[in-house]
Nucleic acid binder design. Sequence first.
DNA 1: GTTGTCTGTGCAATCGTTTGCAGATGCTCG
DNA 2: CGAGCATCTGCAAACGATTGCACAGACAAC
Lengths: 325, 325
Amino acid sequence: MARHAQVHVSTASRALSDDAAGVSTETVQRVRELAAMLGYRRDVGAAGLRTGSSRLIGVLVPRLTDIVLATIYESIDVAAGAAGYSTVVANTLDDTDHRRSHLDAMLSRRIDGVIIGDSRIGDTAAYELQKLGVPYVLVMRKLEGHLSVTTDDFLGGRLAAEHLLGLGHRRVGVIAGDVLASTGIERTQGFRQAYEAAGYPIDDRYVVSSGFDTRGGLAAGVQLLNLAEPPTAIFAVNDFIALGAMGAVRDAGKRLREDVALVGYNDIDIAATLPVPLTSVRSALGDMGRLSVEALLLRMKGEAADPVLLPPVLVPRATTVGVVG
Amino acid sequence: MARHAQVHVSTASRALSDDAAGVSTETVQRVRELAAMLGYRRDVGAAGLRTGSSRLIGVLVPRLTDIVLATIYESIDVAAGAAGYSTVVANTLDDTDHRRSHLDAMLSRRIDGVIIGDSRIGDTAAYELQKLGVPYVLVMRKLEGHLSVTTDDFLGGRLAAEHLLGLGHRRVGVIAGDVLASTGIERTQGFRQAYEAAGYPIDDRYVVSSGFDTRGGLAAGVQLLNLAEPPTAIFAVNDFIALGAMGAVRDAGKRLREDVALVGYNDIDIAATLPVPLTSVRSALGDMGRLSVEALLLRMKGEAADPVLLPPVLVPRATTVGVVG
DNA sequence: GTTGTCTGTGCAATCGTTTGCAGATGCTCG
DNA sequence: CGAGCATCTGCAAACGATTGCACAGACAAC
């Protein structure tokens, strides 16, 4: 241990701490130099034992292979790092057992707070944390009664609907994602209500649920295109689903836009460079991550934080319009 | 603390430990029941303080938004979890400062081992860990003199070359990725050597480096297609680069396959469902993650582990062949 | 010269575990 | 019935840091 090196005992702790109050400048300097020379590293775990804070934030996501969540996690990690916290992330695969065991592991490490990115209707994780008194914030997906930082999914769905309505599409389909995730639910609701308000209510057969990945989009796309009167446009509640739907359109021998228009959601990087660039509703993923950390830090200080609802924007591309604006 | 609840003192520790030797079955049962009732959770950090093991494995990746690395990380986390370890992942963005600070944070948490997925030529992280005596394994990218688990990138490059040679392409371009990453280097070398062996050496102007993302692929693609005699086929050393190149082909008003054939690398999920499905060299990403954990666990036990070189397979699709086999 | 204030340092307890050692209890065997 | 042994439990010392408190010394004021 560095402290036993040359100098005194545990005055070193004070010397190495941020404010270093009550220690002579001279001593501080000497201790710090020695620490640097010896390659001394404070043991965060041991410090946490005493201070009660692990300086660790847990992040729950469905899957990191979903670029959307990976992007959010990246921004969370950056923001947390800037505040002096490390993050631990867990893939819960939208599965109760995985969530349980990962959350348990996090609590065993005396996590200081949790950012939940995988909540679903009926989910108990948030309630449990509430009961345990562990600060938490929901991100991306919301849940009634819990603080969340999300985009305005309802509005996003409406934007997609207005875009397609403006292009003259009357018979449209929706690939709605997970029926228990607020994102899929609200985007679908916003979309349907806009169509209904315009006088073209969408039949339930034209709304199919799916996984949030390419595979799910493919299957759902096939199902929609196999209807007796297939839709002339499809709204996919996320870009991966849209990519899968592209595969379905191709397999059905149809052309994107001319035969079937397609709108995705989130506007991930690759949407713009695809052979047929994808129209998508853009959400500010990085902001979401950053703001969720800010909200969590407030909660960890015991202060109140307000829910956040970021406004989405539709980016028109070749899957819906001929000439890109 | 649960132990002070009803029962004895720290016999509880023994009762809760895995083998529970030297404790009566009766006591074990009683303690465990009580622990369950009280929702007691062992503090891993405090235990680590005593035992010297944090049961934490650090993982260094360039970016999690790169699906390839996210996939590897997922499998690492699963394999580590099965062995009773948690993982912490860090985005180093292929940047020295980020790597330094993240590695420092990990060492401060007394990490038990590190899996390095972002090594580049000239990188010191591996040497530093070696010097500190912290077990580590390289994954995905190799580095001379360090244990690694990778796919046979040289062979993968050769497979791509043989495929294009077989289709009659003589003037080809390569988008080589990061010049300091072994993946890009070896895939490019394998590809070039196969072409050279076939009697069609590739001019340096037809080999351009790039970032490993869509953006980089787009820029490099534009550069290749702007050559006086543009290539009839392009080998991109990863699928995201290939996606970017697709954008370049589209922007140049050319058709995929007919005008410019395209081969990617890694065969990520979306490659198959694109409007024009992408020919790609598949590597067993999940296996790579799992095997890297196995190798690391061996090293952590002080045993020797052998380097692993997984064989890639080429999957032909519409960007190179008319009818998909 | 005594008292008081202030600054800088050291002491020791504490956080939640694990673990070597010793003590207690009950059993077996001679 | 006593010695010896096995089995179970408790004690206490670590692990590496933080922090309230007390103490030492310097200096000023009265």
